[in-house]
């Protein structure tokens, strides 16, 4: 005698799975995901995939052109750099640095951003004011110049690069989380939890956070591309990972001096940056279209 007995509810299917299905339909985004995955596999399996030791110098192969050009050799497909190192192998190893730094910085920044954003949006009042001021101040600094200064002060090193890039990156997820929290905290199910006796911790973590994760994930992936470019910029300026460790930014920089006679030294790592960043951007836009209801029709 209830409306449940005649239920016409659709088969069990979570919101997440529906979103995932939308995402899979997006061809371009799927191609991008595959490209990103190839890069990731390259970083994990670098020793297996790379044809040569990236740091093996061979002065006889100095500035050897790519295989399809005159003087090329199919053993060194993309040619060699000024010290006779295999460019393809260095690109493969360089991907490790780019992706590692990209992921670590974003995870760190997103974690801090979520904490700060949730606190600001949920408690409001002075907490919001203090966090808001810090965010405003950080946003006032030019990103790269400040990172350069920081690196110059702290000296090079992987950990320092992460710090120099993450010190301000958290501001972005923080603002997203704060805005979403402000909206979600007014919804009735949050009020319902409070009426049932739930405390602030429960409400923030269990009621609000799961409902605002989609936009946060989307923003974080978009920003990851940005962080990769910044890392490359730092390395280009010689403030990133120190030689001989391969990094795309420093490879581009190394090739600068022979750009006219040996264009391939700079060009291929540059293309690698473009390809990875483009793939991440397209994939994240696909994510946004699928997961953020405001962009779906």
């Amino acid at each position: 005698m209830t409306d449940a007995t005649l239920s016409h509810t659709p088969p069990a299917d979570s919101l997440f799975r529906r979103n995932l299905r939308d995402f899979r339909r997006n061809r371009l985004a799927m191609v991008s995901v595959i490209v990103v995955l190839i890069f990731v596999i390259m970083t994990v399996a670098a020793p297996l995939v790379a044809p040569h030791d990236p740091n093996q110098t061979d002065l006889f192969r100095r500035l050897q052109p790519p295989a399809w050009m005159e003087g090329g050799d199919w053993a060194f497909v993309l040619g060699c750099d000024g010290l006779g190192r295999d460019i393809l192998s260095r690109i493969i190893y360089g991907a490790r640095i780019s992706i590692f730094i990209g992921v670590v910085v974003i995870v760190l920044a997103t974690g801090v951003g979520i904490l700060a954003g949730l606190a600001a949006g949920y408690f409001r009042g002075w907490v919001d004011v203090v966090i808001g001021r810090i965010v405003d101040i950080l946003l006032g600094f030019p990103y790269l110049i400040f990172a350069i200064g920081l690196m110059a002060m702290m000296g090079p090193g992987l950990f320092n690069i992460v710090l120099a890039l993450a010190y301000k990156e958290w501001v972005i997820p923080c603002r997203v989380v704060r805005g979403e929290t402000l909206a979600v905290r007014e919804l009735e199910y949050v009020e319902a939890a409070r009426a049932l006796g739930a405390g602030s911790g429960h409400i923030m973590w269990r009621e609000i956070l799961p409902n605002i994760m989609s936009p946060v994930i989307v923003v974080s992936t978009i920003r990851m591309a940005n962080v990769i470019i910044l890392e490359a910029s730092l390395s280009f300026l010689g403030l990133g990972v120190q030689p001989p460790t391969a990094s795309w930014g420093s490879m581009v920089s190394d090739g600068r001096s022979f750009i006219l006679e040996a264009w391939w030294v700079s060009t291929f790592p540059g293309l690698a940056i473009v390809l990875l960043v483009l793939a991440i951007n397209v994939a994240s836009q696909g994510l946004r279209d699928a997961f953020d209801p405001r962009f779906s029709e």
Binding site: E191, P210, N211
Partner: peptide, 16 residues
């Protein structure tokens, strides 16, 4: 002391 809300859509957490 409990409460029942008006909006059957907004009052249930969609992720639970």
């Amino acid at each position: 002391m409990q409460i029942i809300f008006q909006d059957p859509y907004a009052s249930l957490n969609p992720r639970r």
